[in-house]
Design a protein around this nucleic acid. Sequence first.
DNA 1: GTCACATTACCGACTGGTAGTTCGGTGCGT
DNA 2: ACGCACCGAACTACCAGTCGGTAATGTGAC
Lengths: 205, 205
Amino acid sequence: MVTTRTSGRGAADGAPVPDRLLAVATRLFAAQGFERTSVQEIVDAAGVTKGAMYHYFSSKDDLIREIYRRLLGLQTRSLERIADGPGTAAQRLREATADVVVSTLAHLDDGVVLMHSLHLLAPHIRAQVRAERRRYHERFRALVAEGQREGSVRADISPDLATHHFFGAVHHLGTWYRSDGALRPRQIGEGLAEMFLNGIAVQRP
Amino acid sequence: MVTTRTSGRGAADGAPVPDRLLAVATRLFAAQGFERTSVQEIVDAAGVTKGAMYHYFSSKDDLIREIYRRLLGLQTRSLERIADGPGTAAQRLREATADVVVSTLAHLDDGVVLMHSLHLLAPHIRAQVRAERRRYHERFRALVAEGQREGSVRADISPDLATHHFFGAVHHLGTWYRSDGALRPRQIGEGLAEMFLNGIAVQRP
DNA sequence: GTCACATTACCGACTGGTAGTTCGGTGCGT
DNA sequence: ACGCACCGAACTACCAGTCGGTAATGTGAC
């Protein structure tokens, strides 16, 4: 298990060794890809040796697995908090969409790694990640369906297709967003939420 | 350059060797990823040897480069044909969005390969692909801007953000679309076009 | 307080294997 | 007889993971 103590030799640079390894690995994986990044590179950048890495992680795959676990857990909890909260379905949808955009932008490297590397993981790990992602998808879809019953979302669109439509935009963020660009995360979140909700909303006469 | 003759030893299976190599490589890259697919696997599946591959392609990267070139060329030509055609901006936008969805679904493997492998190519090749993609983005964005001048698209949204929003959904198709699923490509194209256009359209009173 | 002992944290040379690329060779078509 | 298309063993490089070792830290007896 990963210790959270700050004592020990690893504290030299501030953060505990496992956290440093994950942070460095995320950065390198996002920049050059999982397969193009050697374990040696990671441990060099983290200022430790292979022995340290294999002391805390069982394999290179295990690094990614942990990166995924943290990211997906974070976002799922966030969605469920909003989705199960107060307000109309339309309100909660708007809040959830803007929130997931901002949250994705705040952890952009993790998202990029997930996008680019999920397909080359061992099948059982992939299945695990897919299951978590599916849970997320289902919760969002249910919110859209609730909007339809509520009368605020058009009845003639497929909630599944709408969900895919929106998550496409979210997953795509890593491809084009630059932190030094013109748009701030909040603006992007609100802009995408506005377009998405407007796209599925019933027209007000 | 790639020959188009059908004579020679390579014609045994019908298609010329370079085409067979590209087709097989696309399938394998999409299924298991670029780095997890060895050159040996590709040439075995194509029924030739390494010598043949390195006779037609300068490297393994060159295979991907050619896959990208074909796909992007195809889609760019298609978009420009529609965008420069007749009709209002709104009509052309609808036609273009539905078309690119159907076309992406028809070449799903190529798209998946592009999504998963672009980031690990040599920088100058990546720059080349990005440039082509940018050209595509610009043409689409111009169409949205034209819609704003025409009065059919809301003036308060960023055409760039709208373009990213839509292409997110397109790029995401490879993640969830199953050819044996409930929705046909045409339905998906029209559904996404409907949501997208509705999302950016001015409300009719 | 300190000594002995156990456990944790980390080191880094080494192994076994795989992968992309090269290149001298072969045979068919013209 | 020339060259294009293709062959495939050999080459070089690298890489994930191992393992025997060492230093630091924690623990309990006295």
